[in-house]
Design a binder for these strands. Structure first.
Lengths: 346, 346
DNA sequence: CTGAAAGCGCTAACAT
DNA sequence: ATGTTAGCGCTTTCAG
């Protein structure tokens, strides 16, 4: 591993001239530059990031914490983020918090020790102390999918509540009055917002809410659904608050031969591959996953490069209602065309 | 940021005592240790990895290169690997090569510059020069999903050819004689092996092969399928060589109202969520994704910790034929039970 | 415009 | 068992 000093020796100049050429820190005579460049190529010099960090610089590395990399939603996010980071000259230290705030915190601190230039996180709790310490030490942080309570944090989120309301409204227009909302036990921002959207919309229409909570404590959807069906008034539509829940619901419905779209309308939050393979195809709220990732990196880079010093901004991205057939909407020629699913470019 | 020297000063001992306590390098008197530990806690010391790297140590970081993090197969791999790495005290530098050998190489070299302790890669070409340079500099490398031609490389792969043969055999047992194999234009190990398995099995049975290549050059499946159907003998079964291709096939079949399982048997390689949501459910070859990731990390750690110095081993993992209904097999009570999909723990 | 020296935090090697 | 020193590769500072 040749060092800066080696280059200097070969080029016959001082170390600082080499440093200046490499970093373009200051003016250097054309002749010196030529000699240095030649020497660099000749011995194959590559700067040591470790030495720079030791001198107080930050690593050209971004940190990324998501709950689960295997989750299609986060996988697409992670992919975009890593790509954008690479294009900007950064590598990505990526970790799954496994939905645990303790792991999230621990990994965030390890990343800080490594002098990452910035951090993108899908925080498990809105009130993280590592975030405060991070900001204190000047580390830019962008929250994704869920905001941080700290007013100084940038965040990229979507209009969860609004999306939820639009979806429920659509169901109401189909004449549904008893809409079951399926959620899980996680008390996270997105779920809560979506639930609120559902509740508000139902109440505004003068209707009762009906919520099925799925999870280790409450049990699976399959376990709870029979008794839900047995209780009047029977729901005629199901709104699943994320892709995983939608899949669970659909799977159970298929198993029990409840005909989706006929016996029971089914709609979901998050678009997923299977949504267009099933007949009828599932109506969903689509989140702009790719855009979210791009935005997060863009905001982070702004902070890193010191271009922005204002207090934290919340970028709220628009969701899209993808009306297909599972809500009761009829088939249409254009609707039946197989569309490429966003984010699945391969 | 308190340093080792700071701790030494506060504890009233020499720097090396502190270093020894922190790293457990050598015996230290109980008293000194107590003083040091107290001082560390008091001023909140945390070791600087950069300084260690400068001293010639390696970072406690693993590199991971996959073609595409958004691809469900690799997303699950990545998740497992990152988890196993974390459990072993390593962070993971993760990057998508976007199926391009140039990006793979470039990122691998950046990782090496950062002094990663080991690298797991899904190589785009079997013959990478960065790998050679890596080994030369003592960097352990494990290839995943596809082997490297270098005999000294560890690899974790599956029995692609055998799996393919078993699948085709199953189709033959159903009485199919004209089986269409759908593949893509990527000339990668897995695809080639699976194709070979198909071809060998067909030839062994005295049957002709029929291959539909999908890609930018050849065109989409939808474009080619009509003419395939028009040509005698008409295929009665389709074998898609990966999950993405299977989805493309299924989507087109749905669109053209070809009834899967009745008009046309459809089977795939790689299990995917949608496979069990569709009726009939899709018969597939399941790869042990989680096991692959775990194995890769385990092999890498062995090398890193110097426990193994033998030449490269190829670990070949067994695949599993998941017989469902799309191949023509009848429904059975146990088969209909919704199973949890491996790797999707959330 | 260029160079020399000091030092970032750590540990290997050598004292004690 | 413990302390001291030198130096990893780089940049900041100060002198030319």
């Amino acid at each position: 591993m040749p060092t800066l000093a080696d280059v200097a020796k070969v080029a016959g100049v001082g170390v600082m001239s080499v440093s200046r050429v490499v970093n373009g820190t200051r003016k250097v005579s054309v002749e010196t530059e030529k000699k240095v460049r030649a020497a660099i190529r000749r011995i194959g010099y590559e700067p040591s990031e470790a030495a720079k960090i030791l001198k107080g610089h930050r690593a050209h590395v971004l940190g990324l914490i998501v709950p689960d990399i295997a989750d299609p939603f986060f996988a697409v996010c992670a992919n975009v983020i890593q790509l954008a980071a690479r294009e900007a000259g950064y590598m990505t230290l990526m970790v799954a918090s496994d939905h645990q705030a303790t792991i999230e915190k621990q990994q965030a601190e390890l990343m800080m020790q490594r002098q990452i230039a910035g951090l993108i996180t899908v925080p498990m709790v809105a009130d993280t102390d590592y975030f405060v310490r991070g900001r204190a030490s000047g580390l830019p942080i962008v929250a994704m999918d869920r905001p941080l309570s700290d007013a100084d944090a940038d965040a990229v989120i979507v209009d969860n509540r609004d999306a939820s309301m639009r979806m429920v409204e659509h169901l109401l227009q189909h004449g549904h009055r008893n809409i079951l909302c399926v959620t899980d036990e996680e008390k996270i921002f997105t779920r809560l917002e979506r639930l609120t959207g559902y509740t508000q919309c139902m109440h505004k229409a003068g209707l009762n809410t009906r919520i099925c909570m799925v999870g280790p404590v409450s049990g699976t959807f399959a376990e709870q659904f029979p008794s839900i069906l047995a209780t009047e008034p029977r729901p005629t539509a199901i709104f699943a608050l994320n892709d995983l829940l939608a899949v669970e619901v659909i799977r159970h419905l298929r198993h029990t031969h409840v005909k989706i779209g006929h016996d029971m309308a089914v709609v979901g939050f998050d678009d997923f591959d299977a949504a267009t393979l099933i007949i009828p195809r599932i109506t969903v709220v689509r989140q702009p996953v790719v855009e979210m990732g791009r935005q997060a990196v863009s905001m982070l880079l702004q902070r890193i490069e010191g271009r922005s010093t204002e207090p934290g901004k919340h970028t709220v991205l628009k969701t899209e209602l993808i009306i297909r057939e599972s809500c009761g909407c009829g088939f249409s020629k254009t609707d039946m065309k197989p569309k490429s699913v966003s984010g699945g470019k391969r």
